[in-house]
Deep mutational scan, measured.
Amino acid sequence: KELVLVLYDYQEKSPREVTVKKGDILTLLNSTNKDWWKVEVDDSQGFIPAAYLKKL
Rank of each mutant, 00 (worst) to 15 (best):
L5N: 00
Y8M: 13
K22N: 04
W36Q: 03
V6G: 00
D43A: 11
K55A: 06
T19E: 04
G46T: 13
P15F: 07
D24G: 05
L29S: 03
A50G: 04
W37R: 01
D9M: 04
L3K: 12
Y52T: 05
D24M: 15
L3N: 05
N30R: 06
V18R: 06
E2K: 10
V39D: 00
A50P: 07
V6M: 02
N33M: 08
L7W: 03
N30E: 14
D9N: 08
Q11H: 13
K38Q: 14
S44N: 13
W37V: 02
K54M: 14
L3Q: 10
P49G: 03
L26C: 12
L28A: 02
Y10K: 01
E12C: 15
T27C: 10
S14N: 12
K22H: 06
L29Q: 03
Y8R: 14
W37T: 00
Q11M: 12
V39K: 00
S44W: 15
I48P: 02
E17H: 09
S44H: 15
G46E: 10
V39P: 00
V41C: 10
T19V: 06
K54T: 09
S31F: 06
I48V: 15
N30Q: 10
P15A: 12
L28P: 00
V4D: 00
L28V: 05
G46C: 15
L29V: 11
V39H: 01
D9V: 03
T27A: 09
W36P: 00
N33W: 07
L28T: 02
S31V: 06
V20R: 01
T19K: 08
T32F: 10
Q11L: 11
V18C: 09
A51E: 10
K55H: 07
P49T: 03
Q11W: 13
G46Y: 15
W37G: 00
L3F: 14
S44K: 15
E12A: 15
V18Q: 04
I25G: 00
V18W: 14
L53P: 00
W37M: 02
K54N: 05
T32Q: 12
D24Y: 08
G46W: 14
L29Y: 04
Y52K: 04
T32P: 04
D43Q: 13
A50S: 13
V20W: 05
Q45P: 09
S44P: 01
Y52C: 13
A50V: 06
Y10L: 02
V4W: 05
F47V: 06
E17M: 09
D35M: 14
V20A: 10
K13I: 07
E17D: 06
V41N: 11
V4Q: 00
D42C: 13
K38S: 08
D42E: 13
I48K: 01
A50Q: 05
S14Y: 10
W36D: 01
D24F: 08
K13E: 07
L56C: 12
E40M: 13
Q45W: 15
T27W: 13
K21E: 04
N33Y: 07
Q45Y: 14
E2W: 12
L7A: 03
E17K: 10
L29C: 06
T32V: 10
Y10I: 02
W37N: 00
S14M: 07
V18N: 03
G23P: 01
K21D: 02
L7G: 00
D35E: 12
V6S: 02
N30Y: 06
W37L: 01
P15Y: 08
V39A: 01
K55S: 06
V18A: 06
T32S: 14
Y10S: 01
V6C: 06
L5Q: 08
K54Y: 11
W37I: 02
V18D: 01
D9F: 04
A50F: 03
K34R: 12
A51R: 15
L5C: 09
E40K: 12
P49I: 05
D42A: 14
P49K: 05
L53N: 00
N33F: 07
L56N: 01
Q45R: 10
L56V: 09
S44I: 15
L53H: 00
I48S: 02
K34M: 09
K55F: 08
D42Y: 11
P49C: 07
A51Y: 12
K13Q: 13
A50W: 04
K55G: 03
K34T: 10
G23T: 02
L56H: 04
L5P: 00
L7R: 04
K54C: 15
E17Q: 13
K34C: 11
K54F: 11
K13F: 10
E40A: 13
V4K: 01
R16K: 11
L26V: 11
L7V: 06
K38H: 10
G23L: 02
V39Q: 01
K13T: 12
R16D: 11
V4S: 01
A50L: 03
D35Y: 15
D43W: 06
Q11S: 12
V20Y: 08
Q45S: 13
D24H: 06
V6W: 02
D35L: 14
T27F: 11
V41I: 13
K1V: 12
D24V: 07
F47A: 03
V39T: 01
S14E: 08
S31A: 12
K1G: 09
I25V: 11
S31C: 13
E2T: 13
T27R: 14
I25Q: 03
N30A: 09
Y10H: 03
K13Y: 08
F47S: 03
V39L: 03
V18H: 04
R16T: 10
Y8C: 15
S31L: 04
Q11A: 12
Q11G: 07
D43H: 12
K38C: 14
K54S: 09
K22E: 06
D43R: 10
L26G: 08
E2A: 12
S44F: 14
L26A: 07
F47W: 15
I25S: 01
G46Q: 10
T19R: 08
D24E: 11
D9G: 05
Y52V: 12
S14A: 09
E40Q: 14
E40R: 12
D43T: 11
V20K: 01
G23Q: 02
D9S: 09
D42I: 08
K1W: 11
L5S: 03
L26I: 12
D35I: 14
K34A: 13
L3T: 07
W36M: 06
T27G: 05
N33H: 11
K34W: 07
A51K: 14
I48L: 13
E12P: 15
T32N: 12
T27Y: 11
Y10R: 03
K34G: 09
F47G: 02
Y10N: 01
Y52H: 08
V4F: 03
T32R: 11
R16S: 12
K55E: 05
L26F: 04
G23C: 07
K21I: 05
V20P: 00
G46V: 15
K38A: 09
V18T: 06
P49W: 05
S31Y: 07
D35P: 02
L53Y: 01
F47C: 14
I48G: 02
F47M: 08
K38E: 15
T19P: 02
L29D: 00
W36A: 03
S14P: 07
T27P: 09
R16I: 11
P15S: 11
Y8E: 12
D9K: 03
T19Q: 06
I48D: 03
L53G: 04
L53W: 02
N30F: 06
R16P: 06
D35R: 14
L56I: 13
V39M: 01
L29P: 00
L29G: 01
P15T: 09
K55V: 11
D43P: 03
W37E: 00
E2P: 11
Y52R: 04
L28C: 07
K13V: 08
P49Q: 03
V20H: 03
R16L: 13
Y10Q: 01
L5A: 04
D24K: 07
L28Y: 01
G23W: 06
G23I: 02
Q45N: 09
L28R: 01
D9C: 05
L56Q: 04
S31Q: 08
L5R: 07
I25P: 00
V4G: 03
Y8A: 13
K13C: 11
D9I: 04
L7F: 02
S14L: 08
I25Y: 04
